[in-house]
Design a protein around this nucleic acid. Structure first.
Lengths: 116, 116
DNA sequence: TGACATAGTATAAAAAAAGATACCTAGGGG
DNA sequence: CCCCTAGGTATCTTTTTTTATACTATGTCA
């Protein structure tokens, strides 16, 4: 009980079809409004975007700042704590890139995309 | 296009409710029979176990060795390539452990388990 | 007065993932 | 002959995620 596998804890924060790309943009720009983010990730629905952002907020990865004005303005930014994810995301990205190459070596690049 | 976010590629290999724990055991023992693994992860159904193992095999993370005998014997083991996941898993685990502490600091340990 | 803009909610439907259960294979032992 | 074993498949149902669509609030501008 004392020292189990907590890989899943990290996974929890990253899963959801959209979290990686959302994080990617928020990491890039430091601060983004809801609408800007939506424009950067156009295929996501507002509902999904909201859900994902709230989950990230719950985990203290991003910050939500509401301006009391009309029309509304809400800015999202990475938290200080959230920055601790950087090396992990970087490692995952690296591994991902080389894994794609590896799959390519094994199966050939012809039928990429139907991996998994 | 050339250099997007491949975090998802790494995620793909780890997601699925059971992959982390399956990998954990296979990493531990170096070689495990289907049934042994099933006993180590009793709550999974055979179908799920099979599915997850096949996906890991497809990605060249684990090896499946079938012995031509009756009753059947099939052994799973981590591949050489699969070992390249070790540092990543280790990092994820570390981050997970400290994240649990962090959530605890923020919300108190009273209502752990309903995180997310 | 009425349309516009932003950041959402609410509700329902569709799609994907996981679970439950039954069945198959073929050789060895009784 | 029949049953046992190990490692699966085949189907079907349930649960969880994701999507689609419509609707809301409220200052400001014309």
């Amino acid at each position: 009980m004392a020292h189990e596998c907590k890989v899943e804890t990290a996974l929890d924060i990253l899963v959801g079809k959209w979290k990686p790309v959302i994080l990617f943009h928020i990491f890039q720009k430091e601060t983004l409004r809801f609408g800007e983010l939506h424009r950067l990730v156009p295929d996501i629905t507002k509902k999904m975007l909201t859900t994902q952002l709230r989950e990230l907020e719950y985990h203290d990865i991003i910050n939500r700042k509401v301006y009391a004005q009309v029309p509304p303005k809400v800015e999202y930014s990475i938290t200080e704590y959230g920055k601790s994810l950087t090396p992990l995301l970087e490692s995952m990205h690296q591994w991902g890139v080389s894994h794609i190459e590896h799959l390519d070596e094994i199966y050939g690049e012809d039928q990429m995309e139907n991996n998994k």
